[in-house]
């Protein structure tokens, strides 16, 4: 019941918040534009057919991979609504009228899971749409063969937003939080990744591990399958790109990160000045 109450409170706050509407709108627009644009790109590339990627069951890998950066928008939403609570002193107001400090954080975590679920559903629907319009052969079996890829996508989406929430709690200021998040995602980690390019540890960086949850689809395998080549090429000979950890290990690692971040977020919330 308590969670339901927290959702009701959060709902009033965010549904009326224009930046939320804009960012969520952008997210949806990005997905819809994708639907229109990917097939157009395909028409300009004669040799390789991208539309192979839009077919069941490969569309699941493709869509979760290509829409992974969209999660940055969701993380920005979480950062903005959290830092707003600090700058508007509304965390304080909620405590005065009867919420616990931990409930303030639970509110945001529940919101994150809801947004991630919403995002996953949207990506799922889009994938079904692409799949239905591009597949030659549609059977229920083929349709759902790789649908499980939505699960790592959900996890990845949650992780993005949890990292955003954590930065917002630490930094409190909206602009600084957004800069820190984007800087971490697009600069700090990639640079670290390069510095440690010889070391296995690079696969354990949180953002990297997170993006590896929805990896680039195995194009070679897909085209091979398309060509119906009787003799598959030895996969190891094609292994030019380092693959990192296996998916299950990655998922475990990222879940661990999320758990640790949530734990420390509650610790911070217990001590933080609310304004």
């Amino acid at each position: 019941m308590q969670v339901k109450k927290l959702i009701r409170i959060e709902q009033v706050k965010i549904l009326n918040y224009i930046p939320f509407q804009i960012l969520l709108g952008l997210y949806v627009v990005a997905i819809v534009l994708g639907l229109v644009i990917y097939p157009l790109i395909d028409k300009q590339i004669p040799v390789i057919s991208l539309s192979d990627l839009f077919r069941f069951p490969d569309v699941w890998s493709f869509m979760t991979w290509i829409t992974e950066p969209y999660n940055i928008l969701l993380a920005l939403i979480v950062i903005m609504i959290t830092t707003n609570e600090f700058s508007n002193h509304t965390f304080k107001t909620q405590v005065i009228f009867g919420l616990g400090r931990r409930e303030l954080l639970t509110q945001k975590i529940v919101l994150i899971f809801l947004l991630a679920a919403l995002a996953t559903i949207l990506i799922g629907l889009t994938s079904v749409l692409l799949g239905l319009t591009h597949s030659y052969k549609i059977t229920p079996g083929i349709m759902v063969e790789n649908i499980w890829k939505l699960l790592p996508y959900f996890l990845s989406s949650v992780t993005y937003m949890i990292i955003g929430l954590f930065i917002a709690l630490l930094v409190k200021n909206t602009a600084m939080s957004i800069l820190s998040f984007i800087g971490f995602r697009t600069f700090v980690e990639p640079v670290l990744f390069l510095i440690f390019r010889e070391k296995e540890i690079r696969w354990f960086f949180p953002m990297r591990a997170n993006t590896q949850l929805t990896p680039l689809p195995d194009l070679i395998e897909i085209f091979q399958r398309k060509m119906n080549s009787a003799e598959p090429v030895d996969p190891s000979s094609l292994d030019i790109l380092p693959k990192g950890l296996p998916l299950w290990a990655n998922a475990l690692l990222v879940t661990g990160y999320v758990a640790i971040i949530i734990f420390f977020s509650y610790r911070i919330m217990d001590r933080k000045r609310l304004s």
């Binding site: 706050k13 107001t93 009867g98």
Partner: peptide
């Protein structure tokens, strides 16, 4: 604290919400 009505320093509410919606949030909390 749901049984106590408090005003500490200046009141802080969501600037972009109207009065009614701001008070709805408080009602839900209480």
């Amino acid at each position: 604290r749901t049984r106590i009505g408090s005003l500490i320093e200046t009141p802080h509410f969501y600037p972009y919400l109207n009065l009614e919606k701001n008070l709805r949030i408080i009602c839900t909390i209480k």
